[in-house]
C-alpha cells in the first residue's frame, strides 16, 4: 500500500515538474516544429527578426504584468497606444525633434494612466469597467484629433528604428531595457514588493500601513507609459499611424502575461522570465506561420490553438498544485512548496 502511494506521489511530482516548465517545453517544441517546416527559421537572423517584432508587444505586456499583479487589468492600452502615437506623429510632422516627440508620447501615456488610476482609486470603480470605458473614449478622442486619417511619419524616425548596434535591432535594446528596469523595480524596490503584497491581500496591505492607492496609481501610470513606449517603437517600425493602430493589442498583452504564468487574480507572476517568455511564444507562432507559408486565414486559428494549449496546461498545473498542497496531513508525504 505504502509503495503504491509513494509511486503515485513520484508520478505527480514528475507531472508537476513537466507542467511547471511547460512554457519552456512549449517554446522548444514550437521552435523545433517551425525549424523542421522551414530550416531558415532557425537562423540567427530570423530569431533576431522575431525578437524585433516581439519587442513592442513585449513592452506593452510588461506594463500589463504590473497591473495584473495588483489583481487589476488595463483594457485601455490599445487606445493609449493610438493616442500616444497620434501625439508623437503630429509633433513629428511639425518637424519637432524625435526626443521631444518621444517625451510628449510618454507623457500622454502617463497622463492617460493617471486618469485610469484616478477613477479606480478615487471612486473605487473596478479596473475592468474603468479601462473599458477609457478604451472606448480614448479611441474616440484619438480619432477626433486625427479625423480618422492616417499619419505618415518622417523618414528620420524610420532611420532610427533601423539602427542595429552590434547587429541587434534597436527595438530589442529598448525591450531589454524595459524588462531589466521592471525586474529591478519588482524584485528590489519596496514599492515593487508592495505590488505583490497588495495583489495578494489588499485588506492586509491596508492594515500593514502600505499606501495602496499610491501603488495602484503607480502601476497604471507605468502601464500607460509602457503602452506609449510600445506605440513609439511600433510606429517607428511602421512609419505610419493608422486609425486602427493599437486595436486589440490589449488582448495580446494579457495573453502574453498569462502565458508567462502571471495570474489574473493578482500576486503571482514575473516579468522575467515569465512575460518575456509569453511574448516570445506568441510572436514565434506568428512569425513561424508566416515562414512556413501557412494560409493567412489559417494563421490566426493556429495561434489561438497554441494559446489554448498553453492556457490548458496552466490550468492543469494550478489544479495539480492545489491537489498536492492539500496532501499535507500524513507524515509519509513531504510537501512540494511553491516555486
Amino acid at each position: 500500500m505504502r509503495e503504491t502511494n509513494r509511486r503515485g506521489i513520484l508520478r505527480d511530482r514528475f507531472v508537476l515538474g513537466v507542467l511547471r516548465s511547460s512554457p519552456f517545453i512549449l517554446f522548444a517544441l514550437l521552435l523545433l516544429t517551425f525549424g523542421l517546416l522551414s530550416p531558415r527559421f532557425l537562423q540567427p537572423s530570423t530569431l533576431l527578426l522575431i525578437l524585433n517584432q516581439a519587442s513592442y508587444i513585449g513592452i506593452l505586456a510588461v506594463g500589463m504584468t504590473l497591473v495584473l499583479l495588483t489583481a487589476g487589468i488595463d483594457l485601455s492600452v490599445g487606445s493609449i497606444m493610438y493616442l500616444a502615437a497620434t501625439v508623437a506623429g503630429l509633433l513629428l510632422q511639425r518637424d519637432l525633434p524625435i526626443a521631444a516627440a518621444l517625451a510628449a508620447c510618454l507623457a500622454t501615456g502617463a497622463l492617460y494612466g493617471a486618469v485610469n488610476a484616478f477613477f479606480i482609486t478615487r471612486f473605487n470603480v473596478i479596473p475592468f469597467v474603468v479601462t473599458l470605458a477609457t478604451l472606448i473614449a480614448g479611441r474616440g478622442l484619438g480619432l477626433a484629433i486625427t479625423r480618422s486619417e492616417g499619419l505618415t511619419l518622417p523618414n528620420s524616425l524610420f532611420t532610427l528604428s533601423s539602427l542595429r548596434p552590434f547587429g541587434v535591432p534597436i527595438a530589442v535594446y529598448v525591450f531589454a531595457g524595459v524588462v531589466l528596469l521592471a525586474t529591478l523595480f519588482l524584485q528590489l524596490t519596496p514599492l515593487g514588493r508592495h505590488i505583490y503584497a497588495i495583489g495578494n491581500d489588499p485588506d492586509a496591505a491596508e492594515k500593514a500601513g502600505l499606501n495602496r492607492k499610491r501603488t495602484i496609481v503607480a502601476v497604471y501610470v507605468v502601464s500607460g507609459v509602457c503602452a506609449a513606449l510600445a506605440a513609439f517603437v511600433s510606429i517607428s517600425q511602421l512609419g505610419i499611424v493608422n486609425p486602427s493602430f493599437g486595436e486589440g493589442e490589449e488582448l495580446d498583452a494579457v495573453a502574453a502575461a498569462v502565458l508567462g504564468g502571471t495570474s489574473l487574480f493578482g500576486g503571482v507572476g514575473s516579468v522575467f522570465p515569465g512575460t518575456v517568455l509569453g511574448t516570445l511564444l506568441i510572436q514565434m507562432v506568428q512569425s513561424g506561420l508566416v515562414f512556413a507559408r501557412v494560409d493567412i486565414f489559417i494563421q490566426p486559428l493556429v495561434q489561438a490553438l497554441v494559446i489554448l494549449v498553453a492556457v490548458l496546461i496552466d490550468s492543469a498545473r494550478n489544479g495539480l498544485l492545489a491537489r498536492l498542497r492539500r496532501r499535507t496531513i500524513r507524515k509519509t508525504v513531504s510537501v512540494p512548496g511553491g516555486d
Binding site: 477613477f119 471612486f123 470603480v125 473596478i126 469597467v129 474603468v130 473599458l132 470605458a133 477609457t134 478604451l135 472606448i136 473614449a137 480614448g138 479611441r139 474616440g140 478622442l141 484619438g142 480619432l143 477626433a144 480618422s148
Partner: peptide, 16 residues
Amino acid sequence: YFTVNIVKGSFILAAA
C-alpha cells in the same frame, strides 16, 4: 463616430 465613442465611454464610467 469618435464623439459617439467618447460619450459612450463616459457613460459607462458614469454608470459605474
